[in-house]
């Protein structure tokens, strides 16, 4: 466990010394600032716009960091040959992969915390209230980011960063659309399309199940059972993908 922590801390140090992380974080904070301007320009409930835009920014930039940094997690180590010296130490491959994953996962959580703090400050300036209810949307976002990160890591163990980036992005997009597609196709009388929708729905993670943003912003109640189910679904999926990554990485020759 100690060695996983050593690797995780080092990965965290790597990402916070990485320029990409700072540029994405800076963009994310700018987006929050932009929501203020947008709120002023829009007719309607200004605070809702800020919350809606802020949550979308947290989710979007979290995913971008997960993909951009996650896809090169293992592959970069092999390409830059740093992996030889690391794995020659008395550590197992699963410790290496988990260490890398947890390090980046921690980086992502720091990003979410910084952005959430920024959003809360904005909301407080507007309505002199801290919108604690937003956590009902932010916690599922964190689970979604962990899942996307695991997918990026999985691809990173066997394909190049560019291809893993494309594949992870595809999983993210399809994961958000499968439910809509399934519902849409259900009303049509086309068995082939229905079958395709089923295959997509069951083979990709259903990321929409973690999207509580609109309901939270509009103050619609979320049943606890649904909330817990969604988080458990994401956690199970993440663990399964991590296990698959470990299995693939363990089989590889580090040439």
């Amino acid at each position: 466990m100690k060695k996983i922590a050593v690797l995780a801390l080092n990965t965290f140090r790597e990402s916070i010394r990485d320029k990409i992380f700072y540029s994405l974080l800076a963009f994310a904070v700018l987006m929050l600032g932009f929501s203020l301007i947008l709120g002023n320009l829009t007719i309607g409930d200004e605070i809702k716009i800020i919350k809606d835009f802020g949550l979308a920014a947290i989710s979007l930039f979290g995913v971008l960091i997960a993909i951009f940094v996650g896809i090169s997690l293992v592959y970069k180590e092999m390409e830059k040959r740093t992996i030889y010296v690391i794995l020659a130490n008395p550590i197992s491959r699963y410790q290496f992969v988990l260490g890398k994953y947890l390090g980046l996962s921690f980086t992502l959580m720091v990003e979410v915390v910084v952005m959430t703090a920024g959003l809360f400050v904005l909301c407080y300036l507007k309505q002199q209230l801290i919108p604690w209810e937003l956590f009902m949307a932010i916690v599922p976002i964190c689970f979604e980011l962990q899942l996307i990160l695991a997918v990026a890591l999985l691809f990173s163990t066997f394909v190049s960063p560019f291809l893993s980036g494309m594949l992870t992005l595809a999983v993210f997009i399809i994961g958000h659309l499968t439910l809509d597609f399934k519902v849409l196709v259900a009303s049509l009388d086309n068995p082939a399309l229905k079958k395709t929708a089923d295959v997509l729905y069951y083979s990709f993670p259903n990321l929409e199940t973690l999207n509580f943003k609109a309901r939270v912003v509009h103050g619609i109640d979320i049943p606890w059972t649904e909330f817990i189910f969604s988080l458990s679904y994401a956690a199970t999926y993440t663990i399964m993908i991590l296990a698959l990554s470990l299995y693939i990485f363990n089989k590889r020759d580090i040439r």
């Binding site: 100690k2 060695k3 050593v6 690797l7 080092n10 140090r13 790597e14 010394r17 990485d18 830059k80 040959r81 740093t82 030889y84 010296v85 690391i86 020659a88 130490n89 008395p90 550590i91």
Partner: peptide, 29 residues
Amino acid sequence: RVGYLPENPYFYMYLTAEETLHFHGRLRG
């Protein structure tokens, strides 16, 4: 019980010499 020096060794370039040795020392318990 083994120390390894690969051919043309590559390390994490963002670490200092001292940090590199501490990192490897930690990984060896």
